[in-house]
Every structure is written in structure tokens, then in C-alpha cells.
């Protein structure tokens, strides 16, 4: 039976393909863990770098990453959720929604290095007097632009998943549109929106190219939003590219990886709750 054998072989190949992918993931994770675990400790996370990063900790990069992510989210979360709300609750499908959605998709496709060039020319050269030039604020805003499409898309899906009937019920009881949004749509969409926000935090924390021209390898704690600082990713780039200290580079990589794994685990919890909610309806 030729077709029987072909079937069996093909299935072995399909199983293997999944196995290969698992192995690739495990080797990336394993590589980062094995090399980074020796470097990482509480003091590594909370100490200042010493001796041009060859010793000491990575505290400034952690603070820098927190700041840029905070700035990015402070911009993109309200704008993104607001856009999603406008698309789902205030506009019927048509030219306007199509334009908004297409620009959001296009923005999502822009290569990260192009965001870097854009951030450099807009925030550093054009608006430098207001942003402090190559500052954490400039970097954070650039990241905010970059994660905006993700937030729009995920929030829109979350709001659309709130059943139409529930809105109608609320209108039927005499509630206004705003009351309906506040009492029905937003509570129902919160798990989905939160998942999208965490996803975007993960992206913002992990991106390098968009902010590489705005942050330098800086061993001091950033003094303000308008000051310069560095982040986990940019530090990792400089340390490994210039071969300054692979030990600290791996420690930084593991720290970054742990952040990503934690965010991933949180979204998993949210997703579980989300599917439970959906089943209840």
C-alpha cells in the first residue's frame, strides 16, 4: 500500500516539524539560562555597574527600561483603547474606520529601525528643545508609537467580543451610550484589553532598534525623563556587539528573558479567564 506508507511517513514528518520547533525554543531558552544563571543575583539587579560593566550590576538599565515602558504605555494605552472604542462604539463600518484600521496595520508593519530614524529626527533633532534630545522620554514615545497598533487591534477585538445583546439590554433599560460603555462594554473587555497591554509591554521592553539612537551605554541612574539613560536591550547590544563583557551581557539577557517569560505567563492567566468568560455567555 503505497498511499498508506506515504501517509505514515508524512505524519512522522509533521510530528518532527513540531518537535524541531520545540527544540529550537528550548535551545534558545536553555542557552540564555545556562549562560546567564551564573551572573544573575539580587545584587546584580540592584547594583551599579563597576569597571566599565565588567563587574557590578545592571540597576541603571532596569530603571531605564521601566521608564521607557512607562512612557510608551502612558501614551499608547489611552490613545489605543480610545481608538478601539471609537471604532467599535461610535462609528459604523465605512470609509473612516477603514482608513483608521489600514493606517494602524501599516504602522504595525513599519520596520523597527525606521522607527529609530523617525524618533531620532522628530524627537532628537526637531523637538529636541522639549524632549531633552536623546532622552528616555524620546525613546519611550517612539516605543509608544510602535506599540500603538497592537493596543488598537487587541482592544478592538476585546470590545467586539462583548455581546451585542448586552449593549441592547443596557440601552433598553434607558442607559445612555456612555453609561453603557462604562458599565457593560469596558468591564466585559477588560481582560482582553489587559492581555493586549501586557503583550505590548513585552514588545516595548524587548525592542532595541527603535531606541538605539536615543539611549547610550550609560552607567548612571537616569535623573529625569528628559535625561539620558539606557535600557536592558540597548545595553545587551553594546555589551555583546563590542564584546565588553559577555558575562554581564548574558546576565542582562537572562533578566530580559525572565521579564518576557513572566509577562507571557500573566497573559496566559488572563486568556484562561477570558475563555471562561466567553463560555459563560
Amino acid at each position: 500500500m503505497l498511499s498508506k506508507n506515504a501517509d505514515r511517513l508524512a505524519k512522522i514528518w509533521l510530528w518532527l516539524s513540531a518537535l524541531v520547533i520545540i527544540l529550537v525554543l528550548l535551545s534558545v531558552l536553555g542557552y540564555v539560562f545556562i549562560n546567564g544563571i551564573g551572573a544573575i543575583s539580587v545584587s546584580f539587579l540592584l547594583d551599579m555597574p563597576q569597571n566599565n560593566w565588567r563587574e557590578g550590576g545592571i540597576y541603571p538599565a532596569i530603571v531605564g527600561s521601566l521608564i521607557v515602558v512607562f512612557v510608551a504605555l502612558a501614551f499608547a494605552a489611552p490613545v489605543g483603547v480610545g481608538t478601539a472604542m471609537y471604532l467599535t462604539e461610535f462609528r459604523t463600518e465605512g470609509l473612516v474606520t477603514r482608513i483608521i484600521r489600514t493606517s494602524s496595520d501599516a504602522l504595525n508593519a513599519v520596520p523597527s529601525i525606521v522607527f529609530g530614524l523617525f524618533g531620532l529626527s522628530l524627537f532628537v533633532f526637531y523637538l529636541g528643545d522639549y524632549t531633552g534630545g536623546p532622552s528616555l522620554l524620546s525613546a519611550g514615545l517612539t516605543l509608544g508609537f510602535m506599540i500603538l497598533p497592537t493596543i488598537i487591534r487587541t482592544s478592538e477585538v476585546a470590545m467586539r467580543n462583548v455581546p451585542y445583546a448586552e449593549r441592547m439590554e443596557s440601552f433598553g433599560m434607558g442607559a445612555s451610550k456612555l453609561q453603557t460603555i462604562r458599565n457593560i462594554v469596558l468591564p466585559g473587555a477588560v481582560p482582553g484589553i489587559a492581555t493586549g497591554l501586557i503583550l505590548s509591554i513585552g514588545r516595548a521592553v524587548g525592542e532595541t532598534a527603535p531606541i538605539i539612537f536615543m539611549v547610550a551605554l550609560n552607567p548612571t541612574i537616569p535623573k529625569s525623563l528628559f535625561g539620558s539613560g539606557n535600557t536592558l536591550t540597548t545595553q545587551l547590544y553594546y555589551l555583546s556587539m563590542e564584546g565588553i563583557s559577555m558575562k554581564v551581557a548574558f546576565g542582562t539577557a537572562l533578566t530580559l528573558m525572565l521579564v518576557i517569560l513572566t509577562l507571557n505567563a500573566i497573559t496566559r492567566v488572563f486568556k484562561k479567564r477570558l475563555s471562561r468568560n466567553l463560555r459563560r455567555c
Binding site: I21, L25, V28, S112, L256
Partner: peptide, 20 residues
Amino acid sequence: IVRPAIELLAGIPSIIYGVF
């Protein structure tokens, strides 16, 4: 097993892939 693995693969920062 495979689906979460793929999601994680998508979430790993490019700089970490680079270092790997």
C-alpha cells in the same frame, strides 16, 4: 505544548535571538 511554545518564540526579543 506546541501552541504556547510558538507564542513564546514570537515574544522573545530580537536582540536575544541575536546573542543566541
